[in-house]
């Protein structure tokens, strides 16, 4: 057999794919992705970022495709980011949110899935309060599903944009000391980041009181601390998680004020990190609780960069999941 040098990708694929429709691929979580797959998404996000920094922020890649953005939880940031990503790729978007749809009338996800299928969606972005809901949807319909956050399980595109931002800033993730501070127990962002960062070779440290750490998390290949001072020394990245005030009522922390004192990221604590350390936060920020004002607005914070990169990374995911899906 002759090695086919000198063939364009188009020629190769004409011969080997033969116009077949490939089964749906989904983006459900980083735990299920290999380092190679994660890198593929990140690398394709680079040209996407180029597109959105042009005057004409639009390419025809997903022209004629319909992306259904189905949100069972309120979230403006993530929803808008996905919508924008789809629009930059020329897809049509349909927004279905819990407050406007039959979702509130008690229509189950299973019924909604049938409707989506009947409407001819080409891609579904799902945010749902129940872990595994996107997996259920993916089993029910032969349409690529992107998990935009499911319960405490995963929020893969958030972690991908965090990692993308770090790659831009630091070049490589290998050996980078990343400290994640906050409510790890309830955080899907933390979980997705833990799987993604460890797969790409980062040295991940978690900081939280024992009541906000999930069972057996050490087995994820991370180092667990209870005191931020201990973890922050020589860190390259500090990722701060949002603290929901209801954790006090749930008896998981003695008090928000005490939490801010013990775990809040302030200038003194940040001084323990490397001079070039960056500060990240998935937003929305509880100023004065998990992060001090001057740190959130300081020069080391890359929080607004995260937002821009979010669109590029989501464009990359949308693009990759559309491939192989036939005309």
């Amino acid at each position: 057999m002759l090695t086919i040098a000198g063939l364009s990708r188009k020629q190769r694929e004409r011969f080997f794919l033969g116009g077949k429709r490939l089964p749906s691929k989904h983006c459900l979580g980083l735990a299920a992705l290999s380092a190679k797959e994660i890198n593929e998404i990140l690398e394709n996000a680079v040209p996407m970022k180029q597109v959105i920094s042009r005057d004409i922020k639009k390419v025809p890649a997903l022209r004629g495709k319909t992306v259904v953005v189905l949100f069972y939880e309120p979230s403006t940031r993530t929803r808008v980011s996905f919508e924008l990503a789809a629009k930059h790729l020329s897809a049509d978007t349909v927004n279905v949110s819990a407050s406007t749809s039959s979702v509130v009338k008690g229509e189950s996800l299973v019924d909604t899935a049938r409707t989506i299928k009947a409407l001819g969606a080409d891609l579904v972005v799902l945010r749902h309060p129940s872990a595994g809901a996107p997996h259920l949807l993916a089993r029910l319909i032969d349409v690529p599903v992107i998990n935009a956050g499911d319960g405490m399980h995963e929020h893969p595109t958030q972690a991908l944009l965090d990692i993308f931002t770090l790659r831009e800033r630091k070049g490589t993730l290998k050996g980078l000391k990343v400290v994640i501070i906050g409510d790890i127990l309830h955080s899907r962002v933390a979980r997705s980041n833990i799987w993604g960062l460890t797969k790409l070779g980062a040295d991940v440290h978690l900081v939280a009181p024992p009541t906000l750490l999930p069972a057996g998390i050490e087995r994820a290949g991370v180092t667990v601390h209870h005191r931020p001072e201990e973890a922050l020394v020589d860190s390259d990245v500090v990722m701060v998680l949002r603290l929901q005030r209801e954790r006090q009522r749930q008896g998981l922390i003695p008090g928000v004020r005490e939490y801010a004192r013990m775990y809040g990221l302030n200038a003194a604590r940040l001084a323990l990190a490397r001079p070039d350390a960056v500060v990240m936060h998935p937003g929305p920020i509880n100023r004065g609780v998990e992060i001090a004002d001057d740190v959130a607005d300081g020069s080391r914070a890359v929080i607004t960069e995260q937002v821009t990169n979010g669109v590029a990374v989501r464009m990359s995911v949308l693009y990759l999941l559309t491939l192989g899906r036939g005309a």
Partner: peptide, 19 residues
């Protein structure tokens, strides 16, 4: 790549390059 009219008929790993 992003301007192709047969994008959805490509295999899973159509890598984009920088313009």
């Amino acid at each position: 790549t992003l301007y192709r009219d047969d994008l959805t008929q490509l295999g899973y790993h159509a890598k984009l390059s920088r313009t």
